[in-house]
Design a binder for these strands. Sequence first.
DNA 1: GGAAAATAGTTATCTCAAATAACCAATAAT
DNA 2: ATTATTGGTTATTTGAGATAACTATTTTCC
Lengths: 146, 146
Amino acid sequence: MALDLGPLDGHVGYLLRRAQLAVFADIGAVLAAHAMSPADYAVLTVIDRNPGAGPSQVAETLGIQKTNFVPLIRRMEARGLVLRTPSARDRRSVDLTLTEEGKTFLATLHAMAQAHVDRVRDHLGPAEYEALLAPLQRLARLTRPA
Amino acid sequence: MALDLGPLDGHVGYLLRRAQLAVFADIGAVLAAHAMSPADYAVLTVIDRNPGAGPSQVAETLGIQKTNFVPLIRRMEARGLVLRTPSARDRRSVDLTLTEEGKTFLATLHAMAQAHVDRVRDHLGPAEYEALLAPLQRLARLTRPA
DNA sequence: GGAAAATAGTTATCTCAAATAACCAATAAT
DNA sequence: ATTATTGGTTATTTGAGATAACTATTTTCC
């Protein structure tokens, strides 16, 4: 049924895309059960680790455009997971923090994410899994120099 | 400037997404200079390797929905790169082949793609690059069992 | 001290890839 | 022969991500 991919199945870009789709299909389905997207999960995680950071910082860290960040963070606020409080230092700015509910919710998300990562590691085996992470991190960092 | 990613920077899914974006930024820009998308390139490559295959097969092989495949292949046809001829065996079906122009064009695309892959390999070093491919292929294959 | 430039947040809008639904003609299945 | 399936297509929707433009503040620096 499947045709010959030719040089494609040795191309990093092609493989990265297909691998990413496959992995996101799994984690995406898990998160969707809680009405969360991978981006939502990432945002909560970063806010948890950097309480008081502003939208621009969080968005830039995750490679999200600040303009697209607005509806996302508003959704999180509306769900009672995130607090947007005017910043004391800079009256233009907003401090983002997780609510208590946000923190406990994120904890369950982390557990699910860990289970997902375990599935991936099991599928690849520990050695290949470890071999995968370093180059991915190296490549991922390429985005930042923007 | 960049905040703490917390557990995120060890998560395969997150790293895959960022790495894929970084890599696609490079190859995408290269291809865009010839008014091609990565998907366009992949389609030409598969047709070249499997002359006479039909739209459904090509689309499925690449994980593209057949309905979204239509405008793409029509664009390639309009550019004189692909031939859509009625199939002899099955009168519903269409045989896809590259035109001569399509073949020579694809050859230049392959050269550019190879230069891109070389850049990535140089960035990672040969060892890490090789270590990356196997697990990616394993993960990419997960998509197929659909 | 004050004009000019940069920054934080926002709204509104656009583009484009991917998903859904519905359909026809032809072939395969029972 | 009737039914189900398959290959190709149209039309439409959804959703992510990009662009433009604006306000209010803060920073820069002459």
